[in-house]
Write a protein that binds this DNA or RNA. Structure first.
Length: 847
RNA sequence: GCCCGGGUGGCGGAAUGGCAGACGCUGAGGACUUAAAAUCCUCCGGGGAUUUUUCCUCAUGUGGGUUCGACUCCCACCCCGGGCACCA
């Protein structure tokens, strides 16, 4: 459709399907009848379906739209199935782009944000989604963010919020912390591309996600079946539980350098340790070097190592470097004296910042020890195959599920698994170590030196120190007129009327905290607020939440697999421990839909490859846009946008419209609903069978498989059958026509709701389709009387037979052998085996 | 390096161990039309035989295997996408 005049909105189709007119009409009716407004009602089964809330920026494109179309089909199907459906929408409204846009356009972030919200909302309304707009929330409103502050205070009371100095990316020109994503070109500021990002230490607020490490990990098991496996795996990975042991090695010679604690998952290999290696940042390094014979040589190397800030991506490929400290440690198991080294591959952030090097049984240790000519000693011998000889090893033997210990004193002969338990217990008994579990998960740093976020509700008093703001003084409001320059100190810090306040404890002068919260805080609990969006006494009423939660179906992009979903789970557990909710997990089922791409990459404003949703609605109508995003690919897969393909969806809806229009008069004259199947002619029966079979399969595609694309294909096939050959015209009673067309319309309703309502009305219904439930298929009619069975000879299809459904095997074989095509392949040979799958296929094996 | 996905016509995709390519797009031909658009009809993986009808054969990344039967299950490999990564 290249010409304007050929669209439904234009002149040529003015008498036919006109989506612009139809869609406006039904949206108005739905709104007037308050169809999608829901209340908690314990007498009805509930269903909470939710799409991830959008960040309102740029234009709403078909990538967004696909997400909402999927959610809306689910919501509409569940509604038709009699569920009390909660389907809300809101705005992730705080964040950096708003602040940057405001700086650029010399306006207020709120204005930019609210303009975008108005635009996004307009488009969503244009697409006819079943949102209960009374429940709309916007996270930048004080009515919302005051509860962020309230939660923060609760976490502060519980010791779950704390301040500490931590390493950050610091841009000296912005005078602010940068997120990792804002560090570009291997260490430069995204805003000042000539400015190298410094690695600094500042005081930051943290939420203690690590307090829930085990629960966050263990409860993933409960999500199995409901969440995509890969999301569960990614979270597992992220939490990174590692079971091992910590062991202390005494240090000889150096004054004041106490024992060095190492972490290992393979304590069973400790007799094979031929060195200790410390991270360059380890606090003991300087002490070890004091007065060491190796000092002069080592110090320049250390300085160099500490200076080189390494990009994470390069770590794995980086050359291993190290130097000897001149000191020795004592292996507490063997009393052996081993050298203490410093190595650039040992991370201060993981474990204890020190490792034992067991070159025979660890790849990195082997590489390091070969390079620096440190000895290699085998302490695990494989049970099968060749005996390992230390001098010849080029690859470590790092299996722990096989082999037995050697050269390991009293532990010789044990399997590694046995040894891990026994040796950890021994270490604990002797007081130099114990079994320990460590995690990769870090606490959540939430401080941002930005304006457009939730102010952190604490003040600093010279007398009382850090003092939380009192609950009754919430919300701590953002100052209305900040100086936004993008440079200098944080905008809140340079707004005196915000900073200067009084101490809630002593009433004396105090300074407010000027950091704001990470916007992931906003999205960690927003779905609870939808249950009770206007509550000004509490974040929500627990009874309402108890009715609606958990979320039955959450839908969003895989990009949020870790951060958002992990924080949301954390928040839920905190709220549970505050006795606000009773469940352990907020989201029962998660669906990660694919992205809409154009030119092979995801649609985004910055790439300039967006297809605007509004534009599509104007060109083809919302129903065509919805249908196409559902039809073009299965929902979990990426979808390459094709302007040509959407024409097919548009053509199909026009066909459906014409089909119903053609029979509307006849159908309208039928009083009663169901067609009498018993009195049906052969032709009628064929028709009814087809439609009920389609209904059976579409029902399953919608409800259990989420194969919207194949559901649509089935409906298209049905439409083709009754459209092109025109079997509805001749010898088909009007009530049969009515049943066929009504079922077709109802099947389309979740996907193309406006068109469906219009057709429903055209067929004589005075009540809206929205009051109609999902139809049940007729088992009897959906069943075939006669089946066509492919007949194979030695696994190759050689013919087909038509037999009554449920025919017995001998009968089918008899008919099959009567076919010349089959007989030809069987003749002169012996049937050694026959396989018959009732009503499916027959295979004759001949020899 | 480790862990997950995924590889099917010109394209998007269908087929939950049982007729590979449904449905849609594109393309070709035809009908209608002064013409175009829209609409309707027919054809559309490769090779071969049969001038029709139809039949044979190869084909779901590659090579093996299990099975009466494999796009589907198993093993190995190649390619693409994603996540994690000197994690001790």
């Amino acid at each position: 459709m290249a010409e304007q005049t050929t669209t439904g909105a234009g002149g040529a189709a003015a008498t036919g399907y006109d989506p612009q007119k139809i869609e406006a009409k039904w949206q108005k009716r739905w709104a007037e009848a308050r169809v999608f407004e829901t209340e908690a009602d314990p007498s009805k089964p509930k269903y909470y379906v939710l799409e991830m809330l959008p960040y309102p920026s740029g234009t709403m494109h078909m990538g967004h739209m696909r997400n909402y179309a999927i959610g809306d089909v689910v919501a509409r199907v569940k509604r038709m199935r009699g569920f009390n459906v909660l389907h809300p929408m809101g705005w992730d409204a705080f964040g950096l782009p708003a602040e940057n846009a405001a700086i650029k356009n010399k306006t207020h972030p709120r204005i930019w944000t609210n303009n975008n919200i108005a635009q996004f909302q307009g488009v969503l309304r244009r697409f006819g989604f079943t949102y209960d707009w009374r429940r709309e929330i916007s996270t930048c409103e004080p009515e919302y963010y005051r509860w962020n502050q309230w939660f923060f205070l609760r976490m502060l009371e519980k010791g779950l919020a704390y301040r500490k100095k931590s390493r950050v990316n610091w841009c000296p020109k912005c005078c602010t912390v940068l997120a990792n994503e804002q560090v570009i070109n291997g260490g430069f500021c995204w805003r000042h591309e000539d400015t190298r990002v410094e690695s600094g230490e500042i005081e930051q607020w943290f939420l203690k996600t690590t307090a829930y490490s085990d629960q966050l990990l263990d409860d993933l098991k409960r999500l199995e079946g409901g969440w995509p496996e890969r999301v569960i795996l990614m979270q597992q990975n992220w939490i990174g539980k590692s079971q091992g042991a910590k062991v202390k090695f005494a240090v000889g010679g150096a004054a004041g350098a106490g024992p060095i604690e190492i972490f290992t998952t393979r304590i069973d290999t400790i007799y094979g340790a031929t060195a200790l290696i410390l991270a360059p940042a380890h606090t003991l390094v300087s002490k070890l070097l004091e007065g060491s014979p190796a000092r002069a040589e080592a110090e320049p190397k250390l300085a160099k190592m500490r200076q080189t800030s390494v990009k994470t991506e390069d770590l794995a490929t980086m050359e291993k470097e190290g130097f000897f400290t001149g000191r020795y440690a004592i292996n507490p198991f063997s009393d052996e004296k081993i050298p203490i080294w410093v190595g650039n591959f040992v991370l201060m952030e993981y474990g204890t910042g020190a490792i034992m090097a067991v070159p025979a049984h660890d790849a990195r240790d082997l590489e390091f020890c070969r390079k620096y000519k440190l000895p290699v000693r085998v302490v695990i011998q494989p049970l099968e195959g060749e005996e390992l000889i230390a001098e010849k090893m080029t690859e470590p033997f790092d299996e722990h599920t096989q082999g037995k210990l050697v050269n390991s004193g009293p532990f010789n002969g044990l399997s590694p698994v046995e040894a891990i338990a026994k040796m950890a217990a021994y270490a604990e008994q002797k007081g130099f170590g114990k079994a320990e579990t460590i995690y990769r998960l870090r606490d959540w740093g939430i401080s941002r030196q930005r304006y457009w976020g939730t102010p952190i509700p604490v003040v600093y008093c010279s007398k009382d120190g850090m003092v939380p703001v009192r609950d009754e003084d919430l919300p701590v409001l953002l100052p209305p007129n900040p100086k936004l320059t993008g440079e200098g100190e944080s905008p809140l810090a340079s707004t005196p009327e915000f900073v200067n306040t009084t101490c809630p404890k002593c009433g004396g002068p105090a300074r407010r905290e000027t950091d704001t919260m990470d916007t992931f805080v906003d999205s960690s609990w927003y779905f609870y607020r939808y249950c009770d969006p206007h509550n000004d006494k509490a974040p929500f009423d627990s009874a309402k939440v108890a009715y609606w939660f958990p979320i039955d179906q959450y839908i969003g992009g895989i990009t949020h697999a870790i951060l958002h979903l992990l924080y949301a789970r954390f928040w839920c557990k905190v709220m549970r421990d505050l006795a606000l909710v009773k469940h352990d997990e907020p989201i029962a089922r998660l669906f990660t839909q694919g992205m809409v791409q154009k030119g092979g990459v995801a649609m985004s404003k910055s790439r300039g490859n967006v297809v605007g949703a509004e534009e599509m609605a104007q060109k083809y109508g919302a129903d065509t846009g919805r249908l196409y995003t559902l039809f073009a690919a299965p929902p979990e897969k990426d979808l390459e946008w094709s302007e040509e393909s959407i024409e097919g969806s548009w053509r199909f809806l026009n066909r459906v419209y014409r089909l119903v229009e053609r029979h509307a008069t006849a159908v309208r004259s039928v009083k009663d609903g169901k067609a009498d199947a018993a009195a049906a002619s052969l032709k009628e029966k064929t028709l009814l069978r087809k439609v009920h079979q389609t209904l059976r399969r579409v029902t399953s595609d919608f409800e259990t498989r989420w194969h919207f694309n194949s559901a649509i294909a089935l409906i298209m096939e049905l439409t083709n059958d009754i459209y092109s050959q025109e079997p509805l015209e001749q010898g088909v009673r009007q009530e049969v026509q009515k049943e066929v067309l009504e079922l077709l319309t109802l099947m389309l309703a979740p996907m193309t709701p406006h068109l469906a309502e219009e057709l429903w009305e055209m067929m004589g219904h005075t009540e809206g389709l929205w009051k109609t439930g999902w139809p049940a298929f007729n088992q009897e009619l959906a069943r075939e009387d006669e089946v066509e069975i492919p007949v194979q000879v030695n696994g190759r299809v050689r013919g087909k037979v038509k037999v009554p459904a449920g025919s017995a095997e001998p009968e089918v074989v008899r008919v099959a052998l009567a076919l010349p095509a089959i007989a030809q392949h069987v003749n002169g040979k012996r049937v050694v085996k026959q396989i018959y799958v009732p009503d499916k296929m027959l295979n004759l094996v001949v020899a």
